[in-house]
Amino acid sequence: MTTLVIAEHDNASLRSTTRNAITAARRLDGEVHVLVAGGGCSAACEAAAGIEGVDKVLCADQPACTDQGAEALASLVVAMVKAGTVAYTHILAPASTFGKNVTPRVAALLDVAQVSDVVAIEDANTYVRPIYAGNALATVRSDDGIQVLTVRTTAFDAAADGAAAPVEAVSIEAAAGGSSLVGRQLTESARPELGAAKTIVSGGRGLGNGDNFQALLEPLADRLGAALGASRAAVDAGFVPNDYQVGQTGKIVAPQLYVAVGISGAIQHLAGMKDSKVIVAINKDPEAPIFQVADYGLVGDLFDVVPQLTAALG
């Protein structure tokens, strides 16, 4: 058995999601190969080679992969599998927007199913995954010859450094994709990444507007060293950018501490944060469903409570 992990990276460094995917790959017996496909990505390749449990890094440093388009990356992975130099049994990527974009293309071209958002690996073809916004957990078995998975990063710890795996250049060329990158507007932040943060302060519609969101939650997040998240309603209303959204159709998080401020606790929001270790809810409505999952609930006006909390942590 050999698993091919598709690395998520920005050429210079690996995203931590790759480390979660490597841990998942190690739950399967056999070797773990990591494909780093990009343009000028040798630093990311070196970083992958240092991760514990990695047996080999395949470095595809090619112009067609520079923008990491789904068409190019999928064509490369499929060509590598079909070349048959290594008989890959599993292809695995993090269930991030990156992985979700690429792996279904790979699965379709190989004529196999994909198992999305795997949270547990029972054996070489049996997996557990949430369905219906996490209101049910399904155990599914795939009888396809090659198993294509995306894994939920919160369900697998980040693999640490501790190896010196060989880095091999990939000689197979990716096909040029049909789409071309016009540009990216990435949200700049000095805060920890939502997916990997130990503490998250999240705001909802109750904040009223973007200025309040910033004025109240930034200082609290600063005191806690926290990442900032939001409900869909807060994103839709333009308080914060789209990449703040936590939930069924946004980011899945599981920090040590999640502080929900002015968030009602709709099932779609809970789907993204209910695996947090400790949940705090601040809401003026004692009936808000968020209190049903909160370890500590504080009923009150967030405009009073949040500044008090920030001061108390000072």
């Binding site: 369905i131 049910a136 957990l137 155990t139 795939s142 909160a294 009923v299």
Partner: peptide, 19 residues
Amino acid sequence: RLTTLKVVEPPSRKAGILV
């Protein structure tokens, strides 16, 4: 291509306390 072997409820969080 996939066979569902079982579907279960996720572990539920017990409600905490109000401070």
